[in-house]
Nucleic acid binder design. Structure first.
Lengths: 121, 121
DNA sequence: AATTTAATGCACTACAATTGCAATGCTATG
DNA sequence: CATAGCATTGCAATTGTAGTGCATTAAATT
């Protein structure tokens, strides 16, 4: 089952919500998926994305992803038209200057707009 | 009632969740607050922040805030210790380079870590 | 084979977000 | 002043996601 989930995620090139996965496998249970994804996350296989749509989405980590040891530094793009979220892994988050006394541990950067696919139509 | 809510928000220097406001006014209803805030948001009085805590937070827009006409460009800091979210209105979001074909409409940048207050303790 | 451990499925809870509808209050106009 | 129309508020209920508890099944270890 975990392997199936992994494969499914590998096929997607966009971040996928729990419900999406659930619909893809109408065999399996939400709980299983939920816990599987949690396990994946703990072991640095996937990372979660909060794209502001109110639903947590999941995406496989890249080969050299180090989101388990340091913050996940690439940005995400959420299309307000097709509602898809893509990882722009090549677009790193620029250095953020914080005021004195603030200590950054993690950075979440989500850009909303129209994705390339919808823009073409 | 709306004026009371506005005043309350003006007193806060951190972004405030619906529940926070609800507790502050144990007279009023969630629905009223909810709709009031929605009205405020539509009219550019407040902006909502998704700081990743799973709860939408609200903060008054600045004097010269133009988040109704263009994206709200300042960043937010969410303290993982005291759980407060502050608007770092002086810290603008740097220009983001997107791949060809992508059109940005809004940018949401939340930095998580330890805030100045908690860091001092 | 028996015992232990991991994985799965079902049922349920918790909480934020949201909506429908009725009741109330306010305003404008005849 | 009456009343019709609209905005605001309150209550109840619904939706949807996240998460937990427990029993059952599958797998691994001895």
């Amino acid at each position: 089952m975990r392997i199936l989930i992994f494969k499914y995620l590998a096929e997607q090139n966009v971040a996928t919500s729990l419900t999406d996965i659930e619909n893809a496998f109408d065999k399996s249970e939400r709980t299983t998926l939920y816990r599987t994804l949690k396990t994946f996350e703990e072991n640095g296989v996937v990372h979660t994305i909060d794209d502001g749509s109110g639903v947590t989405k999941y995406a496989l980590c890249e080969e050299n992803c180090r989101c388990d040891v340091e913050s996940d530094l690439h940005l995400h793009f959420h299309c307000s038209q097709c509602n898809e979220t893509v990882c722009l892994t090549n677009h790193k988050i620029p250095q953020i200057n914080l005021p004195e006394g603030y200590l950054a541990e993690d950075v979440n950067l989500v850009v909303k707009g129209i994705c390339e696919k919808c823009n073409r139509i």
